[in-house]
Computed example of a mutant assay.
Amino acid sequence: MTVTNASPSHEAPTTRPVVPAIEVRGLTMMYGERVVMHDLTFNVARGEVFVLMGGSGSGKSTLLKHLIGLKTPAKGQILFDGADFALGDDVVRKRALRRMGVLYQNGALWSGLTLAENVALPLEEFTDLDADTIAEVVSLKLALVGLRGFEAFYPSAISGGMRKRAALARAIALDPDVLFFDEPSSGLDPISASRLDDLILELKASFGTTIVVVTHDLDSIFRIADRALFLDIEEKTMTALGPPKELRDNPPTPHVHQFLTRSSEGVS
């Protein structure tokens, strides 16, 4: 009897490998002749909360600037959804930027615009929505961050925690695939910081958003991070990557242990 191969209809379906949301390959960051960090290689998986952590001056915010395209790598690659974002043409960069949202450390709201006008800015710039539709989207985004009814308020008229939430509403205005946070709890009281952590977890759970957070806040790191990357200021490279509780309980280096077991008071 002749044995033949099975019909293609009975073959196991092939699956394509899942491309990480962000891939960093051999990244070196420099200011002039000074190396900030070198040989950074890591992936950010889709739908995870990924924390960039390390001591003051370790290059956390500098790395964030590279990830969102504000700085060009001295060496290495940054891939956004499989495409080289840092060296891509204008089409690649604009497509990537359209799918990103950024919450800066101080919120970076325009003081002369109302909260509604601030949130409307990216919608006006990147979409063809009419004014009525934009107003509906703005109200929805403000409601999602607990600011329903504050559309007409100016940033100076609300608290620091509310300004951070308004800035988050602007960051999610375009329903981004990836959200970046630079020290979100900086300057906030514990209750406001905890509320912002809750919003981060809600965005992940409800929308599957990939979230990258720069922070030194231990409470926040242990609460929200699926994985954390440690930047060692003395080694000038990454020395740990994994779930923060595992890194705390089984630290790969003394610096990681010191960072994750310190008192959070007075640390920046």
Rank of each mutant, 00 (worst) to 15 (best):
T253C: 14
M53S: 06
V138I: 08
G82Y: 05
P20T: 08
L142A: 02
K236H: 08
A166C: 06
Y104R: 01
S56L: 10
T62P: 04
R93F: 00
A120K: 12
A152G: 04
S192Q: 12
P244E: 11
A240E: 03
L123C: 06
P13R: 09
G47C: 13
V92D: 02
H257E: 15
S185N: 09
D128W: 01
R46W: 12
V256Y: 08
A167H: 04
D198F: 03
G32V: 02
G266Q: 01
D84Q: 05
V267K: 10
A86R: 12
G112V: 01
P252C: 10
A108Q: 08
G82I: 03
V49M: 04
R227I: 05
D39R: 12
G266H: 00
A143W: 07
L63F: 12
G112P: 01
H10M: 13
T209G: 09
P252M: 11
L142K: 04
I134H: 00
K94H: 15
A173C: 05
G187D: 07
D189F: 02
I221S: 03
R195T: 15
D90C: 05
Y31A: 14
D217H: 07
K236V: 00
R227F: 13
F80E: 10
A167F: 12
D189W: 03
R16G: 14
Y104T: 02
E265H: 12
R195M: 15
D249Q: 14
L247W: 06
T4F: 09
M1D: 00
V35R: 04
V92H: 02
F153K: 12
G55Y: 10
S58T: 08
L201Y: 01
G107S: 08
A143Q: 02
T41R: 09
L87I: 00
I172Q: 02
T215V: 05
F150R: 05
S159M: 03
P251K: 09
H216D: 04
F50R: 05
M30G: 06
H255M: 02
G76K: 03
P176H: 12
S9L: 15
A193T: 08
